[in-house]
Design a protein around this nucleic acid. Sequence first.
DNA 1: CACGAGACCTGTTCGC
DNA 2: TGCGAACAGGTCTCGT
Length: 272
Amino acid sequence: MPELPEVESIRNKFRLGSDDNPSLIGKHIRGVELLWARTLESPAPDEFSRRIVGQKIGEIGRRGKYLLFHLDDETLVIHLRMSGDLFYEPAATLVAKHHRLVLILDNGERLAFNDARKFGRVWLVNDPAAMLAHLGPEPFDEALTPEDFHQRLQQHHRQIKPLLLDQGFLAGVGNIYADEGLYLAKIHPLTRSDALTPEGAKRLLASLRHVLNEGIRRNGASIDWVYRGGDFQHHFQAYQRTGEPCNRCQTPIERIVVGQRGTHFCPQCQRE
DNA sequence: CACGAGACCTGTTCGC
DNA sequence: TGCGAACAGGTCTCGT
């Protein structure tokens, strides 16, 4: 799915608006079209429509990989999972293949949730903080110091890569940015979390923040047939570069499977 | 607690 | 060309 930088890019697209994409803030939700029932996690479709129609979109936020559309007195929470995306569409646009939930806005314009693989989920909740309470800290939270991060790493005895993907440990990092962050920090993906020194933890936190920032700066990554407008994919150092030379030492990048996820690293720069 | 397998899904690419 | 396998930005549940 979109990871933190992609979700942040989508958030900004709808918050700030652009040429072909007006800001959604201040628009009203006038109707609902649910095209794939399981996309709507809760409440049930009838209640969802009843509660959301008539509400005005306020601030648009993000927590980890969750998008938060704050409405008058509730919050629309969206998780794009692997293949989800959101599109603004003028009135009279044909309903595209893979649209799963369409919100009708003023004058027939629409906000469409498109998701080929149907893994994405939508909720309408009164208390978003409660439903997001399981998430770990935001990577950019200034309260998360290198010392705190090291201490949190010490509390587990796990391979570092799957731990970084654990949203309860740290919110927002996914497969791309975990590989890129570990590469930049020169840490092997199988390193035990509690084997990292304070210096290693500090380097890893700074590296994760750096690659996430680069991703946001480039509006995220667009890969395979899933295009999201960004171009960070042209700046990968490890992810999906199997067999290509490491940009630091020319050793071919290796691919292994860790926690059932493709994992890319430089066997020379990232020693176990 | 840590970890692997399987599930949920569709589409693209790879290998024979 | 054709066809099945492998793979894809995520997360949940279950069994060991």
